[in-house]
């Protein structure tokens, strides 16, 4: 293709009143990685277009035109764009770091919430068990009080029984029966056994 272009340009040089504006081939980017969708894997750098525009401006506006002003402007633009990309890269890196930190914090918070929920459930269980135990203790105290009362009543009944037995033993009829030998072979079934 370049050979063909060279022949075409050579042919064009034969035409009158024609200025040839050519660009260095070194400014051409070539290869399958060039990002452009044309039929050929070649493209000029932005600076190369600016270089060509400078040459055209000198042809168009005369020799007083500042040489390569557009190229210098294009280089300054490229430099500014590069700095901007670098700044964006730094910002992106900082943003990614902060996002990672935030994600870690969110994960830790989620874990803590799970742990807290488990602890609260365990605490509720303990509280329920404690309430049950306390209720049982109250019931047990009431039973003990009843038991103490019953024991007191039982002791009173025993004392009364013993008193009645002693009184019965001292009764004249009892002395008579002992003298007669009656009723000594078996206990009186009417008396309670304790």
């Amino acid at each position: 293709m370049n050979a063909l272009l060279a022949e075409m340009i050579a042919e064009a040089r034969l035409l009158p009143g024609l200025d040839i504006l050519s660009l260095p081939e070194a400014l051409q980017v070539t290869g399958p990685d060039v990002t452009w969708d044309g039929p050929y894997y070649s493209r000029l750098l932005a600076e190369a277009y600016a270089f060509g525009a400078d040459r055209l401006a000198r042809l168009r506006f005369g020799p007083g035109e500042e040489p390569e002003a557009g190229l210098r402007a294009a280089l300054r633009r490229a430099e500014a764009q590069l700095e901007d990309r670098l700044r964006q890269a730094v910002l992106t890196e900082e943003r990614d770091r902060l996002q990672a930190e935030a994600a870690a914090l969110h994960a830790a918070l989620a874990r803590a919430e799970v742990t807290l929920a488990g602890t609260q459930a365990a605490l509720a269980t303990v509280r329920a068990e404690l309430a049950t135990t306390q209720a049982a203790m109250v019931e047990m105290a009431a039973l003990q009080a009843h038991l103490a009362v019953a024991r007191g009543e039982l002791a009173e009944m025993r004392r009364e029984r013993d008193s009645l037995r002693a009184a019965a033993a001292r009764h004249p009829l009892a002395r008579l029966r002992r003298a007669l030998g009656v009723g000594t072979e078996a206990a009186d079934p009417a008396l309670p056994r304790v």
Binding site: L15, D19, F61
Partner: peptide
């Protein structure tokens, strides 16, 4: 292409069909 750009173009331009990429001497601001 040569016939179109050379022969036809020359014939056309000789008849004044159009201006061709201006030389610096013919340019004006």
């Amino acid at each position: 292409w040569r016939e179109g750009s050379g022969g036809s173009a020359r014939r056309c331009w000789s008849r004044g069909c159009g201006a061709v990429a201006g030389s610096s001497s013919t340019m004006r601001a």
